[in-house]
């Protein structure tokens, strides 16, 4: 039976561990040994909305494994603009490719595509719903830095209300034993109650605060997110909170050595560029880790063993 990757909520602990083990292997493997792993395979990139990082990451992952990439990242020049259904576009695309990666502005689009296609489908973001490869690459980054994804103290900072990235990461980290959370956000952008309830049900320690400096000194990871202007009906409200949580090099003066600052990117002002050169900056290596994790995902879904 074919395997898809649609939602982080579909993944059990065992499956997550398998992806992490495979990504660790891919990380260690010399580039020269990877170049033929997906030779002759074709990835269909169906991007119904703009994305730089995710699309390039998938394309780079495929190309570096010897595979080829076809597809579109602008629907204006496709049959979609003529009114073709998503299902028909998928049924057409699967005749050309071995695996599909889809990003779509509407929630549930990837699930629909997976139901229609006979080849594996990977969700690269469906509206405000899921972005499971981001969750897996975040976990891979955490494991690479700390050797584990359990027993860590993690601060999630910024927009915790609307950010699908933090929601999925929070849920995934709840699957591992002994993690604690410090949630740093403006009161208007708190983590939704249903997620807090999930943590309570598992007796996981979760604190809410607005003190980023304390997070820097007490946590292993500070995961920053962007506060998105488009989420605010009132521009004044946005102006009030947009720069509420900014990390700069001065704040990191006495930070513990183990600390890593992560960010799904793109950033705006929340991490000052003067942090980039410090040992704490984990967000650009995180981009590389994303490509490695996507290689692992492509291999697993295409049934290629290493």
């Amino acid at each position: 039976m074919k395997m898809d990757l649609i939602s982080a909520t579909d993944l059990g602990l065992d499956e997550i561990q398998e992806f992490l083990t495979l990504a660790a292997k891919m990380d260690e493997m010399p580039a020269v040994e990877k170049v033929d792993l997906l030779k002759g395979r074709v990835l269909m990139v169906m991007f119904y909305e703009p994305s730089t990082r995710t699309r390039l990451s998938f394309e780079a992952a495929m190309v570096r494994l010897g595979g080829a990439v076809i597809g579109f990242s602008d629907t204006a020049s496709t049959s979609v603009s003529k009114g073709e259904t998503l299902r028909d576009t998928v049924l057409t695309g699967e005749r050309y490719a071995d695996v599909i990666v889809i990003r779509h502005p509407q929630e549930g689009a990837a699930r629909l595509a997976a139901g229609a296609a006979s080849i594996p489908v990977i969700n690269a973001g469906d509206g405000a719903n899921q972005h499971p490869t981001q969750t897996l690459l975040d976990l891979h980054t955490i494991r690479k830095n700390f050797g584990r994804t359990s027993g860590l103290k993690i601060a999630l900072a910024g927009d915790l209300k609307y950010g699908r990235t933090v929601h999925s990461l929070f849920q995934a980290l709840l699957k591992f034993q002994g993690n604690e959370f410090l949630l740093i956000s403006p009161p208007t952008l708190r983590l939704p109650d249903y997620l807090l309830a999930e943590a309570r049900a598992k007796n996981v320690k979760v604190e809410e605060s607005t003190d980023l400096q304390t997070a820097i000194h007490t946590c292993d990871i500070v995961y920053m997110t962007r506060i998105q202007r488009e989420r605010f009906a009132d521009v004044l409200e946005y102006e009030k909170v947009k720069d509420a949580f900014v990390i700069d090099a001065a704040m990191l003066a006495d930070a513990p050595k183990k600390l890593k600052i992560l960010h799904p990117l793109p950033r705006v002002n929340e991490i000052s560029p003067d942090v980039d050169g410090t040992t704490y900056a984990g967000y650009f290596p995180q981009v590389y880790n994303g490509m490695i994790m996507r290689q692992a995902i492509l291999l697993k879904l295409l049934g290629v063993k290493i």
Partner: peptide
């Protein structure tokens, strides 16, 4: 109920 759910946009769903 979600206006942005694909089921409210795609035909024959």
């Amino acid at each position: 109920r979600n206006p942005n759910c694909i089921t409210n946009h795609e035909r024959h769903m």
